[in-house]
Amino acid sequence: MNVTLTVNGELRSASVPPETTLLVLLREHFMLTGAKTGCDIGDCGACTVIVDGKAVNACLMLAAQADGRTVVTIEGLATREGLHPLQQVFEETGALQCGFCGPGVIMTAKALLDENPSPSTQEIRTALAGNLCRCTGYVKMIDGVHEAAKMLQSTETPALAAPQQR
């Protein structure tokens, strides 16, 4: 079957078998391997992407169900001007160690910040409950989301600055 969807601002199409998940579509047809295949049953959150503004497990959605929708993956966050504040903070503070969970954590955090620009620590913890990390203990991630929230609200953030500043 044919599916057509907007991925990171670009209209993309593919012909896939019906049992193809959104995760397989992204990774194996569009070669966007940022979203990871972890548990593949919706427990670990490594496959998290944003569909029509909501963080979802790409492993639990059929590609057919994403037809016509707008999907944002980790590959869609950085701009010419620089990394997204979440990416920048996570990199600078060592909020990730092995990094496997990172794309999922960052996409979940992005969906949270899009809806709630200054979340409380509890709100961040609740949002990240579906993203398992076996390295870090989560503390630097939670601090990082707070920090990125502050950066997003300031105009100094490179990724958000006006193009003429380049």
Binding site: K54, A55, N57, L112, A129, G130, N131
Partner: peptide, 9 residues
């Protein structure tokens, strides 16, 4: 129920 990602679906 579940986590944010599963509650959204």
């Amino acid at each position: 129920i579940g986590a944010v990602q599963t509650r959204n679906l």
